[in-house]
Simulated scan of single mutants.
Amino acid sequence: MTSSTIGIIGSGGLGSNVARVLAQKGVSATIANSRGPASLASFIEEVGPSIKAGTVAEAARADIVLVAVRWESLSKLLGGMPAWNGRIVIDGTNPVEFLDPNVPKDPTNPLAEWGIKAIDLGGKHSSAVFREMVPGARVVKALNHLDVNVLPQTVASGGQRVQFFSGDDVEAKAEVRKLLEAAGYFAVDLGMLDAGGPLAQLPFGPLAAINFIKI
């Protein structure tokens, strides 16, 4: 089990379900959102004492920080952060825009049926863009490739649910592997960030949304 402190920035589907997984295993973490700790009171009551609510600044001071917010919120969120100083930042994001369900679907958007639209990053993969937003951090891509609703079920079909991760720093990846394994997943290293990031990136990565189980 990892001995690192853990922060989760974002309490939507990804952040809340990762917190649930950690709580199931008794792993401590601080979760935060833009609305403040008081808005998380009922969630904290649900998941139990190993998860506490904090400010974004408090969550960002952890040894390992999961960024679990929508892509369009990243620049504003990360632009105000203090120096990362070599701490580990898990990029759990994907370059998609969530569409207003009340607006007619764009027939040219192949993802309209799922309520999302791919964001054009000018030929870059999302973790390459993310990496530039967190100077001084050791970035590991993880926890982004599956439907967030399956994350709390780490055991499925008689085996462990697979989580991919990638990054350029060996020690940072080792810490993230420990965290994924402590949560109950079977962790699979996809290599360097420029190799693994595009493989697992939603919506068009070849491993995106593929639900592997290690039997």
Rank of each mutant, 00 (worst) to 15 (best):
G122W: 04
V96H: 00
G80Q: 12
I90K: 04
M133P: 06
A60P: 04
G48Y: 13
D63K: 05
D106A: 09
G54P: 02
A57C: 05
W84Q: 12
N94F: 10
V129R: 01
G79K: 15
T93V: 14
R138A: 14
A137H: 03
P82Y: 13
A62K: 01
E97M: 13
L66Q: 07
L66D: 01
K52R: 15
P101F: 11
N94K: 11
A118I: 06
N94P: 06
R70I: 12
T55H: 05
A83I: 04
W84H: 13
P82L: 14
E132N: 07
L66P: 03
A112K: 08
P104I: 12
S73K: 12
S73Q: 14
V56W: 00
V67F: 01
I119C: 08
L111W: 14
P49F: 13
T108E: 13
W71P: 04
V140C: 05
M81D: 09
R131Y: 02
G54M: 04
G136Y: 01
P101E: 07
P49D: 15
D106F: 10
G92C: 13
V65R: 11
V67Y: 00
R87L: 06
D91R: 01
T55C: 04
D100E: 13
W71T: 11
L78A: 10
D120I: 07
D100P: 10
M81C: 11
A137K: 02
L77A: 05
P95C: 11
S127P: 00
E132Q: 14
L74W: 05
A128Q: 08
L74H: 07
V67E: 02
R61T: 12
R131K: 15
P101C: 09
A112V: 12
H125V: 00
G92D: 03
W84A: 11
L111C: 01
A128T: 02
D100F: 13
G86A: 12
I64R: 11
A59K: 04
G123N: 11
R61I: 02
K76D: 15
S127F: 00
E97H: 13
G54V: 05
V56C: 00
W114A: 10
R61C: 06
A53H: 07
T108L: 04
D120M: 08
H125M: 01
W71L: 03
P95V: 14
K76T: 15
G92P: 07
E58D: 10
L111S: 01
L99S: 04
K76Q: 15
T108Q: 11
W71K: 07
A59N: 03
L77F: 08
L78T: 10
R70P: 12
A68K: 08
A118C: 05
D91N: 09
F130D: 00
K117D: 12
K52Q: 14
W84E: 12
G79N: 14
N94T: 13
K105E: 12
S50E: 07
A128K: 01
V129P: 00
V140I: 15
E97D: 12
R87V: 02
A57E: 14
G136K: 06
S126A: 15
N109P: 03
N94V: 09
N109S: 03
L74R: 09
S127L: 00
V67S: 03
